[in-house]
């Protein structure tokens, strides 16, 4: 699972590398983004704003990446008791706290398997994401439009694959459907990155009021 998630993210990484050079960043800038920012959504938001607004939009690109990264903070709250990481391990763990590592970890049954899933997936994604970013950036011009290779569809499919195992209960299905609609419908009218955060508000409202919950699932809801 960890390796296949890493490989899938690698496809996404080629797409990021190629799109980043197309947005006007050089290979080094692209690579440093993947090494230090290491959060696909934030990185795509960053280069997307730069592609549309040019160097004058760097400030907006930073804010957009920052806002899109907020979900990682919530993932970190979830991962903290599972990892029990202190010192250097906490600093490294924080950097690896992303969609994929959290999704794999929280789909495991026991705490030991959750921690193992987190570290293996985080490491696999970090390695594949960065090496494929480099490959994508170098091949960027030769590859031409990444859409020709369907890499944008691959990125969407990767998110769908991570989402899929989490859609078992009615409440999760309702939140997933609402979040999908909110994010897509508000995209034309809100700055890049904000629709995804707004979709998170759906989870806060539904979770806070415990809407759409079956009685039988209430006991398990706080897992």
């Amino acid at each position: 699972m960890s390796i296949s998630v890493g490989l899938a993210t690698g496809l996404y990484g080629i797409s990021f590398g190629a799109l980043s050079t197309a947005a006007g960043l050089d290979v080094w800038q692209t690579q440093v983004l993947s090494l230090l920012m290491f959060s696909g959504g934030s990185q795509f938001a960053f280069i997307g704003i730069l592609a549309a607004g040019g160097p004058a939009a760097v400030g907006a690109a930073v804010v957009s990446a920052w806002l899109l990264g907020v979900r990682n903070g919530f993932y970190a709250v979830r991962m903290n008791p599972i990892l029990d990481a202190v010192g250097l391990k906490r600093f490294v763990g924080a950097q690896l706290t992303i969609d994929e590592s959290t999704a794999v970890a929280t789909s495991q049954e026991t705490k030991v398997l959750q921690a193992k899933g987190f570290w293996l997936t985080g490491a696999a994604v970090f390695i594949f994401w960065n090496s494929m970013t480099l490959l994508g950036a170098i091949l960027g011009n030769a590859l031409g439009d990444p859409k020709v290779w369907g890499l944008d569809a691959a990125a969407a499919a990767a998110f769908l694959g991570l989402l899929w195992p989490r859609l078992k209960e009615r409440q999760a299905l309702a939140v997933g459907a609402l979040a999908f609609l909110v994010a897509v419908i508000t995209t034309p009218s809100l700055p890049a990155g904000i629709p995804v955060i707004l979709a998170g508000v759906v989870a806060v409202i539904v979770g806070g009021l415990n809407l759409f919950a079956k009685r039988s699932s209430n006991k398990r809801a706080g897992e």
Binding site: G41, R71, F74, Y75, V77, R78, D99, T102, A103, T106, A156, F159, L160, L162, L163, R166, L167, Q171, A172, V175, G176, A177, L178, A179, F180, L181, V182, A183, V184, T187, P195, V196, A199, G200, V202, A203, V204, V206, G207, A221, E223
Partner: peptide, 15 residues
Amino acid sequence: ANLLTVALLSALTGV
């Protein structure tokens, strides 16, 4: 926290 992961992954899929 659980539902937030679902919402954000679903929103990212949609976008």
